[in-house]
Design a binder for these strands. Structure first.
Lengths: 379, 379
DNA sequence: TTGTAAGCGTTATCAA
DNA sequence: TTGATAACGCTTACAA
C-alpha cells in the first residue's frame, strides 16, 4: 500500500516551505508565479490530494454535505424520485469536490438525531433536507445548530401563500421579501417561524391547476385526488390547491376531493377500490405518485373498468412505470435531477456565505398519454 | 451557534488529563472504574461527540465507508434493489457509528477515479463495491491501493466455478480455500487474480434452476431469458446456468436461450416484442429485473396475448411493481436488505483485520403469482 | 493509575 | 515573497 504524499513531501521536493505549498495549492497570493508553477508540478507528479481530515480539522471545510432520507422500510425504493434527485445533486457537488454523506433512517426523530450527531462530529458542512412537513421540527433544529441547510420542497411559509402571491413570486427571492408578503406573523396571529433556511420549491398549486384544467376540459366533473401523507407539506399544498380550484370553478366539494394515503402501492390500491365503490364514483383519479397510479390502474383492470373509456388516470411524477403499463399513464413530468442541481447550487451558495433564498424550480409539464380521455357521458 | 465540547473541556471539568478522558471514552484499560464513570458522566452532560476529522487525522478510523453506483442516468432510480441494499447496509453501519459516503457516477472509469480520490484524501476506511463484472478492474485497483473492500455479487472466481463446486461451497469459506479449488492458477494457465477481496454472493445458478424447474413442471419447453447487461458477472452467470440447465434437460439451445439488454424498460420491451414475433415464440419469459418484466407484460397486453394463458412471465427480483400490475407477476424474492446487512458485516470484519471471505446469502425464493401457468397445449 | 507530550496534515498568523 | 510556528482535537507512547 503506497504512502500518500503530503505537502511536506512536496515542500521538500520543491525546496520551499510548507506554507508556500499550501498557499500555492490553494491559489492565494504570497507566492511568485514561478514557485507556484513549480509547486503545482511537483504536486501533480506526486499525485497529491489534500487529506480531508486534516483540512476539516484545521478549520476549513469538511468537504461533505449530508442527506438523510426518513422513510419506513416498506416505502423504500419504489419511487424513482430519490435517486434522480441525488444524481442531480452530485452533478453539482462533484464539480466542487464535495462528497455526499447519505443515511436512511426510519423516522423523523432518527433524522434529527443524525443531524445532531453530524453537527457534533463536525462531519458535514451542511445538509439537504427533503420531504418538508406541515409541522416541521427540522428548520428550527438546524438553524439552532447553525448547520447550513437547504430545504427541498415546499416550506411552511409557502403553504400559507395565496395563489396570487405565488404567481408574483420572483424566481429567486431572498427570504425576507417572501416573509414580508404575509407579514412577520401569520394570518392566524401565531408568530411565524423565521424562514432562515434556503428553499427550493415546485409550484404544486400551478401543477395541480394544470392537471385539473386538463381533466375539466375533457368534461370530468367528479375527480378524486389520491393524495400522499397529509403530514408532508407538499401534500397539504396540493390538497389546498385542489380545494381552491374547485371553489373557483363552482364545483361541489363532495365531487372534487382528496383522500389520503401513505404513498404505498397497497394504500393507493385500497383507496382506489374504495372510491370506485361509491354510488357516484369519480370519472378521473389523480395520484400523488407513480406507484399508486400504477396500483390504481391494476385495480381498475381487475374490476373490469376500462381506462380511459370509463375512468381517466393521472400520475404525479413520471417514471418508467408510467410508460410501461398498459395503457401508458398520463403523467406530470418534473425535472427531478434539475431539482437536485438547484438544491446543491443553493447549498453551495449558502456555504459561501450567501443569504438564504427561496428558489422556484421549473413548472412541471403534463404529459398526456393513453390514460386520460373524455369523461363518459352517462355512467 | 453553540461551541462543540472537546475532550479538553471534559478533562477540565472532570479534573483529569486529556489522555485519561480518551482512554475512558474509548473503553481501554488504564483508568479506574471511578474516574471512568465520572468522565463518562461529564461527557454525557456536555453532549460530547468525537470530532470525526480529529479522529481520522490521528490515525484512527475515518468512520466512513464508501459506495459508488455507476449507472447511466437513464437507468437510475427504477429498481427497488438499490435503496433496500443501502438500508440494510446502514442498519449494520449505524450500530458502529459509521457513515456512508455515497456517489452516483456515469461509468466504471469514473467509479475508479472516485476510489482513487477517496483513498488519496483518506476519506473512507473501506468501500462496498456493487455490480461486479466479468472483466472487472476494481478488485485489482482496490487491493493495489490497499483500500479494504467487499464485493457485493458474484466474483470472477466464482464465475468459473462448476455447479458441483458451488453446491459444496461452505457458507463462509475463507478465500484461500475457494482459490485452492481451482489451484493458484486458472485452467488456462494464466495467473489467476488473487481473490483478496471479501465477497457476498447469491446463488444465481440455484435460483435460475428453481425458476426453470417451475416452468418446466408447468410444461414450458420454449423459454427465453431476457437478461441484463452481459458485462455484469451475475448476468453472465445466469446465462451460463440457463445453458447448463437446458443441456441437463436435453433441451434445444435454440428454444431455451438468453437475449441481452441494458436493463432498461425500453430494451426489455423491445426484446419482448422481438422474441414474440418469432415464428416459434417462447411460451415463457424470464426477466432479469422487475422493470423489464412489467414492461414485457405491457407489451404482451398490447399485442393481445393473454398472460398467463398463452404466455408465462417471471421477474427476477420482486418489488411493489410486481404486485401492482395486473396480473400480478410471479417473482424471485430476495432479501435485499439482508444482502446489504451481510455486506456491511463483512466489511466491518475486514476493517477489524479479519481475512477476506466469501459469504453466500440466502437462496432466493420463487413466489408464484398470477403470471405463470400451464404452457398452452397448441399455439 | 495517572499525566505529559509528540504527532497526524492542514491552514493561518506572524516575523523576516 | 518567503519560512517558522502555532493551532485544530484526537490517539498513543512514554514517564511519573
Amino acid at each position: 500500500m503506497a504512502r500518500r504524499p503530503t505537502i511536506k513531501d512536496i515542500a521538500r521536493r520543491a525546496e520551499v516551505s510548507q506554507s508556500a505549498v499550501s498557499f500555492a495549492l490553494n491559489g492565494r497570493p504570497g507566492v511568485s508565479q514561478d514557485t507556484r508553477a513549480r509547486i503545482r508540478r511537483v504536486a501533480e507528479e506526486l499525485g497529491w490530494q489534500p487529506n480531508s481530515a486534516a483540512r476539516a480539522l484545521s478549520g476549513a471545510r469538511a468537504g461533505v454535505v449530508g442527506l438523510v432520507l426518513a422513510r419506513p422500510a416498506h416505502t423504500l425504493g419504489v419511487e424513482s424520485f430519490f435517486l434522480q434527485l441525488v444524481s442531480g445533486i452530485q452533478e453539482v457537488l462533484a464539480a466542487g469536490r464535495i462528497a455526499l454523506l447519505f443515511q436512511v433512517v426510519e423516522d423523523i426523530d432518527a433524522e434529527c438525531a443524525v443531524y445532531r450527531r453530524w453537527w457534533a462530529e463536525r462531519r458535514v458542512d451542511g445538509v439537504i433536507v427533503v420531504d418538508p412537513r406541515t409541522q416541521d421540527p427540522r428548520p428550527e433544529l438546524l438553524t439552532g445548530l447553525g448547520l447550513p441547510a437547504v430545504m427541498v420542497g415546499t416550506t411552511q411559509t409557502q403553504t400559507t401563500q395565496t395563489a396570487a402571491q405565488t404567481a408574483t413570486a420572483a424566481t429567486a427571492a431572498t427570504v425576507p421579501a417572501v416573509a414580508a408578503a404575509s407579514g412577520p406573523d401569520g394570518p392566524d396571529g401565531r408568530a411565524q417561524p423565521p424562514a432562515t433556511l434556503s428553499t427550493i420549491w415546485a409550484d404544486d398549486a400551478g401543477a395541480m391547476a394544470q392537471v385539473l384544467d386538463h381533466l375539466h376540459r375533457l368534461g370530468h366533473r367528479r375527480i378524486t385526488h389520491v393524495a400522499g401523507l397529509p403530514a408532508l407539506a407538499h401534500t397539504a399544498r396540493r390538497m389546498a390547491s385542489l380545494r381552491a380550484w374547485s371553489e373557483r370553478h363552482g364545483l361541489d366539494p363532495a365531487q372534487v376531493r382528496s383522500v389520503v394515503t401513505d404513498y404505498s402501492d397497497a394504500e393507493g390500491a385500497a383507496a382506489t377500490r374504495r372510491v370506485l365503490a361509491d354510488p357516484e364514483p369519480p370519472t378521473a383519479l389523480v395520484y400523488d405518485n407513480d406507484v399508486m397510479a400504477v396500483a390504481g390502474a391494476a385495480v381498475a383492470a381487475g374490476l373490469g373498468i376500462p381506462v380511459p373509456a370509463r375512468l381517466s388516470l393521472v400520475a404525479w411524477d413520471d417514471s418508467a412505470l408510467c410508460r410501461v403499463t398498459h395503457p401508458r399513464l398520463t403523467a406530470l413530468v418534473r425535472d427531478t435531477a434539475g431539482f437536485g442541481r438547484l438544491a446543491a447550487e443553493e447549498l453551495l451558495a449558502v456555504l459561501a456565505g450567501g443569504p438564504p433564498r427561496v428558489r422556484e424550480s421549473e413548472l412541471p409539464r403534463l404529459e398526456p398519454r393513453d390514460s386520460t380521455a373524455q369523461a363518459p357521458v352517462a355512467y
